[in-house]
Amino acid sequence: MARLARIALTEDELDRYAPQLASVLEHAAQVAALDTAGAAPTAHPFPLRNVLRPDEPRPSLDPQVVLAEAPAAEEGRFRVPRILGEAP
């Protein structure tokens, strides 16, 4: 989970969180055990549909403002350490 969530947890943290999460999951098991046959999943509280925006350009940000927040930038782009592996 820590790898999927991309957090470099320490051993100490792993030891601490494991039982805490287990107790929460045990509580959550009430949900897993319920009979919900016939109830469709709700992703949104209200059934909105087709919320659309006209295809009209709006001003973009000033690139200097954008890059001012970057931990590292170079040649107008965000600089990151080397990338191992391709995007999935």
């Binding site: 959550a28 949900v31 897993a32 919900t36 109830a39 469709a40 999943p41 709700t42």
Partner: peptide, 13 residues
């Protein structure tokens, strides 16, 4: 978990 929780949400509504 997630799917079931969304169904519970329906029951509560």
């Amino acid at each position: 978990y997630y799917g079931q929780a969304q169904r519970v949400r329906t029951l509560i509504i």
